[in-house]
């Protein structure tokens, strides 16, 4: 019962020149506190839209989204978000990027820096406070983005393919670090990805979204104890299952067309 976040019959349609486009249809989803949920699906299936709805950046066309039992209205600091693209403010250095949300709140400068330092250390970027985004690698940028999202202490962390544009090696490291951060902060995390490997490595539960319209077709628990080994038999078995569901959806979509 005590869900952190609950989506009830959430539908999102967009008006385009060719008429209405249903991006998401009847999504029902409940997330427990401190759960790590991965949303996976082909590109263009509306999984990013789903995250934007939860963030409050867009409103659902129908249905409701409840946070701690209360309906959401607009963006707020109780939901942090890490974007797919590099969303760091290029005119602010690492420290000032992390303090952004705190500065908006009007928190005292000394306090801002203290909190920011904590999170910069958490993501392993101590010593890089004065660097500007253009001086950082892709992986470092996303670490700063995570620290920035966490600094305002949101209950939920929304992540929209955050590691999509970093190289495979860095991505693995970032995934491990994220799990460590998750363990330490006990945040509820919603992580959108199109990578099967990423989902199986990270999530407690994985939600498969089909494409056009985006429907939630499968929700499965990943009962593999942590730390998971990327090459272990269980991980590979689950990966196989997930790939099968995804290809099934793809076939369905092809037949419908």
């Amino acid at each position: 019962m005590n869900h952190k976040l609950e989506l009830r019959n959430v539908t999102k349609t967009f008006k385009t020149e060719e008429g209405e486009l249903t991006a998401l249809e009847n999504i029902n989803l409940a997330i427990k506190p401190s759960e790590f949920l991965c949303i996976i699906g082909p590109s263009g299936c509306g999984k990013s839209t789903l995250l934007r709805l939860i963030a409050g950046l867009d409103d659902p066309s129908s249905g409701e989204i409840l946070l701690d039992g209360k309906e959401l209205r607009g963006p707020s600091q109780d939901r942090g978000m890490v974007f797919q693209e590099y969303s760091l403010f290029p005119w602010r250095n690492v420290l000032k990027n992390v303090t952004f949300g705190l500065e908006i709140q009007g928190i005292d400068k000394q306090e801002q820096y203290k909190i920011a330092e904590e999170y910069i250390e958490l993501v392993g970027l101590k010593g890089f406070e004065k660097r500007y985004p253009y001086e950082l690698s892709g992986g470092m940028k996303q670490r700063v983005a995570i620290a920035r999202a966490l600094a305002t202490e949101p209950a939920i962390l929304l992540m929209d393919e955050p590691f999509g544009s970093v190289d495979a090696q860095t991505r693995n490291i970032l995934q491990e670090e994220l799990l460590e951060i998750w363990k330490r902060t006990k945040k509820t995390i919603l992580f959108v990805t199109h990578s099967v490997d990423e989902a199986v490595y990270l999530a407690d539960r994985v939600a498969v979204v089909s494409s056009r319209p985006g429907c939630l077709v499968k929700c499965a628990k990943i009962d593999i104890p942590r730390p998971r080994k990327r090459t272990s038999v269980e991980v590979n078995e689950f990966r196989g299952k997930l790939l099968m569901w995804l290809s099934l959806e793809r076939t369905k979509a092809c037949i419908q067309r």
Binding site: A55, G56, S76, R79, G80, M81, I104, Q105, A149
Partner: peptide, 9 residues
């Protein structure tokens, strides 16, 4: 969007 999510309204 990033600013909005960080509480800039």
């Amino acid at each position: 969007d990033a600013a909005k999510v960080l509480g800039c309204k």
